[in-house]
Nucleic acid binder design. Structure first.
Length: 642
RNA sequence: GCACUCGUAGCUCAAUUGGAUAGAGCAUCUGACUACGGAUCAGAAGGUUAGGGGUUCGACUCCCUUCGAGUGCACCA
């Protein structure tokens, strides 16, 4: 609708002798209860016109109507100028733009963008939280590609570290040589099983250590600094308990607070005490061996990671996501130290007496942040600085997007700020696509309480539900077994993906495992059904896409449909700009809904005449095309029949 | 304690980024052509946008404040 904005700018200049920016023209879709398709808000112009909003609107309306042949009529209600654009214009949009093969196919914009997503740990299988991450990352990559970017999808695999050693050690101790082949388990699940086994053993071994602390008050197994921390916590617990004893039983809120405080301190002690268990000490030793390149440990590491990768590959395939480039932390965890040197030389970082390196971000409203330990070893952020540099060296991308949960907001704020202060090329193009956690009705998913929703299980359940629902309708009896299986996958995944993607990424998402994902209403299958139905109609008709039927007037639903279809390219732009698949999801739903309304109101195959029929077929074909394109941006397939 | 995020119909989500009478789906109730596919469509009911104050011609949106929920504040990753 740029031509309207342009004309409005001209109108203000002609009528009120004032130059305004195109961005200053507030333009929006006309609300359904009023006549017209495009509305200009005229309140902002009253200061130039020095007339009331109605009169200003009328004057601009008159001007536009004379100036633009596309404007058939207008009406003014309060400060809103509603423009009715001619049917001729909409019909020509359909035939000249929407039905064209290159409709909404963006020209390459010459910019490169990297999208990093998934980034799993190789010690346990993927869960629902990972699913959201993967779907978001994949979809954002698709959307950016559709907007003309060259996209590189990357996966930074967390394949090393103490947590990986935990499952390795547990397998060594309790595994009896079990393999995916011998157990029939998917590799990632098998490794996850030993991660759980480790945790169980750790809890057993923790009991005597805690007894030492709480009953015998013997802290001799701990190092000096650990001792000090435990003593501090013990002292706090003592004080809080005293206060609790004096508190009136009636003030329940205060008691709850105090109990929480005690639990918090006890957790701190537990964390420290864990390190004194034999199994944790062994794990630490294993990690040291790994870092030293010990042959036996490396072999075990390679073998078990290999199992996990095979498992992940299967999950990714089911999910329909993929990557152009894998980075492994085992290759990147030592990076970043040269950047420390660089930062020190530039005066961005400073050194403390114990040789540790820091950055002072207090002028940016943040704290001092450690970037290198006193013993010269890296911390998390050191490594991330190095990896950012590595990625840039590899691809020289203009932008880099990290799809990571919002619990790491602070980390990325700091990381990006550091890179900017270092004056790194590309630092301004960094963006943390921070998404909300997936919660259950009971709150967070907790592996210890067994409430984690496993990715593979969930996908399998979705397919089963799709199967039940479809069979109940008895519409696929003619399908081959193979086609049925494929269809159930398409529908089940469509329901799941749409359910997760229709919500604004920033917002937390509630998932109730006891309530199956819907297949009716505002859902993926609703949209898939609409597509299949259109295809069914098209297959029964002799649709001629080449000729242009002589149609000059539109029914309201027909016009609504074209207006929506016409909006698709700018919707993709908006989604790309805000990195939000939800924008696409809501648009496609609106489109499907409008098509269904049209379908019910207007007969296609029994249209009044051949021109109308061909016109409605063109509308139908275009709707199917845009539904299919939009859903593809969400990573959702649409079936021909269902 | 400090910082950040969030709070919209019973439930799950929208609201063109400050615009008109806050819209959808689910659930509830009422209807639909002997069908171009009923996983659909039409309608009813459902709201003090957590509460209070402010800025503005105009506030779900911006500012202040109270309440409630979540997350982060390691020489862990």
């Amino acid at each position: 609708m740029d031509f309207i904005i342009e004309a409005a700018v001209k109108a203000v200049k002609q009528l009120y002798q004032t130059d305004i920016e195109p961005a200053a023209v507030s333009i929006q879709e006309t609300r359904k209860e009023f006549e017209g398709q495009v509305t200009i808000v005229t309140f902002p112009f009253t200061k130039f016109s020095r007339k009331g909003p109605e009169q200003t609107g009328t004057e601009i309306g008159e001007y536009l109507k004379n100036e633009l042949k596309e404007i058939a009529s207008f009406n003014v209600i309060k400060g809103f100028l509603n423009l009715s654009i001619s049917d001729e214009y909409w019909i020509s949009q359909l035939y000249n733009n929407i039905t064209a093969d290159d409709f909404a196919v963006a020209k390459p914009n010459g910019e490169k963008v990297m999208v990093e997503y998934s980034s799993p740990n190789t010690n346990k299988p993927l869960h629902l939280g990972h699913i959201r991450n993967n779907l978001l990352g994949y979809s954002v990559a698709e959307i950016l590609a559709a907007d003309g970017y060259e996209v590189i999808k990357t996966n930074l695999v967390n394949d090393r570290g103490i947590h990986i050693c935990k499952s390795m050690l547990a397998w060594q101790k309790f595994g009896n040589g079990e393999t995916p082949e011998s157990s029939g388990m998917k590799g990632d699940h098998l490794v996850g099983k030993y991660y759980v086994a480790f945790d169980k053993e750790l809890r057993e071994q923790l009991k005597p250590v805690l007894t030492e602390v709480y009953e015998k008050h013997d802290l001799s197994v701990f190092k000096e600094n650990q001792k000090a921390k435990i003593e501090e916590s013990l002292a706090t617990i003592g004080k809080v308990k005293e206060k609790r004893a004096q508190t009136d039983e009636a003030s329940q809120k205060l008691i709850a607070e105090l109990d929480e405080k005690i639990a918090g301190e006890e957790d701190k002690i537990k964390e420290i005490a864990k390190n004194a268990t034999p199994i944790m000490i062994e794990t630490q030793q294993m990690l040291q061996k790994w870092e030293a390149g010990d042959e036996e440990v490396m072999n075990l590491w390679r073998t078990m990671n290999g199992w996990v990768y095979a498992g992940f590959a299967e999950t990714y395939k089911q999910l329909g996501v993929d990557f152009d480039k894998y980075y492994y932390e085992s290759n990147t965890y030592l990076l970043g130290k040269d950047i420390i040197e660089e930062g020190l030389a530039k005066g961005v970082f400073f050194k403390k007496a114990d040789n540790s390196v820091w950055i002072d971000l207090s002028s940016d409203g943040l704290d001092e942040k450690l970037v290198l330990r006193g013993d010269g070893t890296s911390v998390y952020i050191t490594q991330d600085m190095g990896t950012a540099q590595l990625k840039y060296n590899d691809y020289h991308m203009d932008r880099s997007i990290y799809v990571v949960g919002n619990e790491q907001d602070y980390h990325f704020k700091v990381l990006f700020l550091i890179l900017q202060k270092l004056g790194k090329t590309g630092a301004d193009g960094l963006f943390h696509l921070s998404y909300g956690m997936v919660d259950l009705p009971s709150g967070k998913m907790k592996s210890r309480e067994g409430t984690v929703v496993d990715a593979d299980d969930l996908m399998a359940e979705m397919e089963t539900t799709a199967k039940e629902q479809t069979e109940a309708m008895g519409k696929v009896d003619a399908f081959s077994e193979e086609d049925k299986v494929a269809l159930y996958h398409t529908i089940g995944m469509g329901a799941l993906k749409y359910f997760l993607l229709k919500v604004d990424p920033k917002k937390r998402l509630l998932f109730d495992p006891n309530e199956s994902v819907d297949f009716q209403g505002h859902t993926g299958p609703f949209i898939q059904y609409t597509h299949a139905r259109i295809k069914s109609v098209l297959s029964r008709a002799d649709y001629n896409a080449e000729t242009k039927p002589a149609v000059t007037e539109l029914a309201d639903v027909e016009r609504d449909l074209i207006v929506l279809l016409d909006k698709y390219p700018e919707t993709v732009k908006e989604a790309a700009k805000s990195y939000s698949p939800a924008v696409i999801a809501n648009y496609v739903y609106e489109l499907a809904k409008t098509y269904n309304k049209f379908y019910h109101e207007k007969s296609i195959l029994q249209a009044e005449d051949e021109d109308s029929k061909q016109f409605r077929l063109a509308l139908s074909a275009s709707s199917a095309k845009v539904i299919s394109k939009g859903m593809k941006l969400l990573g959702i397939e649409v079936p021909e029949r269902m």
